[in-house]
């Protein structure tokens, strides 16, 4: 008689407890994976060719996408500030808001998300396919450490490329705002650049670069980790790919907020 209502009371807590334990276990697994990747990656043998290949994949081949995103976002931002600002004749804030908005937030976050969409998914699919087709087993029997050979070059390349890409994206984003302001909104080019120069701060760039490195870390980590743990054929690889992208997005947005809150809070 009493068992049923008691169960009703306990069940939700049991469910919460289970998912909490599951979450903790997952965090533990990711932490272990990260530790192994970094410690093995820092000890020989090194794979410089793999690293260079990953720089090309992550950085170089993502540049067109990143550049386009940045130029459109910079221009759209300029237009929005101009329209909103004209209600209280504050159009002159356009260059300042563009530079601050792009450098502090939009540059790093948009680059992070674009590259996560491109790269986390590709890494998870590639490594996941290697898992389900036993290529990872073959690698082990051929005495090559997957952490050194596959994971570390990806992780280190992403941590290094993302800041460089954010630098480029910031420059292109500011250029997009300038282009629209001068060509369409009738700003004076020299004035616009003057204001821009005054509002560009080295501190903001530093924060953007730190954010970018953190995003790069999460992008590669999620791609590699979920690929490594893939199982169950093509469907398993599909799952791994989806989970990698979604979790990279969450980690990017979450860590972006934390860093912003820490610096300005």
């Amino acid at each position: 008689m009493t068992a049923a209502p008691l169960n009703m009371l306990v069940l939700p807590f049991a469910a919460i407890g289970r998912s909490l334990i599951g979450l903790l276990a997952a965090i533990g697994r990711v932490a272990r994976f990260t530790g192994l990747t970094i410690s093995r990656g820092l000890t020989p043998p090194y794979y410089p060719a793999r690293f260079a290949e990953q720089i090309a994949h992550i950085g170089w081949f993502s540049l067109p996408v990143v550049g386009l995103t940045a130029v459109f976002t910079g221009a759209a931002l300029a237009q929005q500030i101009f329209t909103a600002g004209s209600r209280f004749s504050a159009q002159s804030t356009v260059p300042a808001v563009v530079v601050i908005g792009i450098v502090r937030e939009l540059g790093p976050v948009l680059v992070g998300l674009m590259v996560a969409g491109r790269v986390s998914s590709a890494m998870a699919a590639e490594i996941g396919t290697m898992r389900v087709t036993e290529q990872l087993d073959a690698l082990a029997t051929l005495r090559t450490d997957a952490y050194r050979y596959l994971m570390a070059p990806r992780l280190f390349a992403a941590i290094l490329s993302l800041p460089l890409m954010v630098l480029v994206a910031n420059a292109i984003g500011i250029f997009g705002g300038w282009l629209l302001a001068v060509q369409k909104l009738g700003f004076n080019s020299a004035n616009y650049l003057n204001v821009t120069r005054r509002f560009v701060s080295w501190d903001d760039f530093q924060m953007a670069l730190v954010k970018a490195a953190v995003f790069g870390f999460f992008i590669a980590l999620m791609g590699c980790y979920h690929g490594y743990r893939a199982g169950g054929g093509a469907a398993g690889v599909g799952n791994a790919t989806r989970t990698a992208v979604v979790s990279a997005f969450m980690l990017i947005l979450g860590s972006n907020f934390l860093i912003t809150a820490m610096v300005f809070g």
Partner: peptide
């Protein structure tokens, strides 16, 4: 040991000759 996997398990990101010599190079160029 040498192992021939049931599904071959060749590395599809590299050419045949790199695959065949992988046990000697361990992926180094």
């Amino acid at each position: 040991f040498g192992m021939l996997f049931q599904g071959s398990a060749l590395f599809d990101s590299m050419p045949i000759w790199r695959n065949v010599t992988f046990a000697l190079t361990h992926g180094q160029r």
